[in-house]
């Protein structure tokens, strides 16, 4: 199993480090990352910043070993964190990250999407020095099944890739809402960023061919379809939706067709069909045995956090650094531009 996570060798040593972590934004993701980090190393989360009085006051009454603040500067002054996790709504990522970079916090984890467009992502990168580490929460790259798929594609198991069909779907928006109006972007940026990032990571996207978006419950894109030309010349068709009522949980699926066979891969499984030779299916329980060492939500979240701590310890840039995911953000921008023109 560790063969899919070679970079995590020596993780026990990493967890001996005496690090101080702060989380900005105690929503679902802030809570999840904080809990995983504390399970990996008890007490590693020292501070939580949230603008909600209810959250900070209630939290401080309940959790005694964490400092709760409503002000980032105050937290930095009092806690001096080595790492800050930014898990606030997307629009606030850029100003918060800018402030933290300015305050010389060297290690930042930005929940996905890192910013609302690639211009802001580039701007953040320009603000950083060489010793800054900005990791983006694109955790699908830490999923064992997708890593396995990438490995098989790179080893030419399928031969030349002829086409890719992929989707990511959830049931997160199933009723009318205007809460995305201020951001002005919907499912492609919020959920589709995972799929676009996986395709970029595994295949390298050359250009956007076609894009179309549709509103269902919001004033932004609830459904997005696109065609991407890959570096190999193959076409990738993608579909993104957050209004699919048949999904209990978000699900990412990819069907990769090559001259020698087909791979179907999701967070749950990898099915390999090489006609006349091999037909195998491997599921989650086959991949996640004794790994990761914390089970909270999907394993990819813990693996992602382990990867970040590991990168900091060994002074390496993370796999999903802002630099390494900038191309994904540029593709997202292009997709929106193309879809708006088509519209």
């Amino acid at each position: 199993m560790w063969v899919l996570y070679p970079e995590l060798k020596g993780i026990d040593e990493v967890l001996d480090d005496d690090l101080r972590i702060a989380t900005v934004g105690l929503g679902k993701m802030g809570l999840l990352h904080s809990a995983i980090l504390n399970m990996l190393k008890p007490g590693i989360v020292k501070a939580i910043v949230d603008k909600s009085y209810l959250v900070t006051f209630g939290g401080s009454r309940l959790i005694r070993n964490v400092k709760f603040c409503r002000d980032i500067s105050k937290m930095i002054h009092e806690v001096e964190p080595d790492i800050v996790y930014i898990t606030t709504p997307t629009r606030s990522h850029y100003p918060i990250a800018s402030q933290l970079i300015e305050k010389q916090v060297l290690n930042l984890f930005l929940e996905k999407p890192p910013t609302d467009n690639s211009i802001k992502a580039s701007s953040l990168l320009r603000k950083c020095g060489s010793n800054h580490k900005l990791m983006v929460g694109l955790q699908k790259r830490y999923s064992a099944t997708f890593r396995h798929a990438k490995k098989l594609v790179e080893e030419k198991m399928l031969g030349k890739i002829s086409s890719v069909e992929a989707y990511i779907k959830s049931n997160d928006v199933a009723a009318p809402t205007n809460r995305f109006d201020r951001l002005g972007k919907g499912v492609l940026l919020d959920l589709g960023v995972h799929l676009v990032d996986l395709i970029q990571w595994i295949f390298n996207v050359e250009k956007v061919e076609k894009a179309a978006m549709r509103k269902i419950y919001t004033n932004v894109d609830d459904h997005f379809q696109a065609s991407l030309k890959l570096a190999s010349g193959a076409e990738a068709l993608i579909e993104v939706s957050w209004s699919d009522v048949s999904r209990r949980l978000p699900e990412t699926c990819m069907k990769i067709c090559g001259e020698k066979g087909i791979i179907e891969v999701s967070e749950d499984y990898l099915k390999l069909d090489l006609p006349g030779s091999t037909k195998t299916a491997r599921y989650r329980p086959h991949y996640y045995q004794g790994i990761p060492q914390v089970n909270l939500a999907d394993p990819e979240y813990t693996l992602e956090n382990m990867h970040f701590l590991h990168s900091i310890h060994y002074a390496k840039q993370p796999l999903t650094s802002l630099q390494n995911t900038l191309k994904t953000m540029k593709i997202i921008d292009e997709l929106y531009e193309k879809a708006r023109k088509t519209h």
Binding site: G27, K28, S52, L54, V55, D172, T177, L249
Partner: peptide, 18 residues
């Protein structure tokens, strides 16, 4: 838990607590 996670997705954690 999934029902509360979905509600938090929709309205945010403070609104869910309220």
């Amino acid at each position: 838990a999934q029902s509360y996670i979905r509600q938090a997705n929709k309205a945010g954690a403070p609104a869910l607590i309220q």
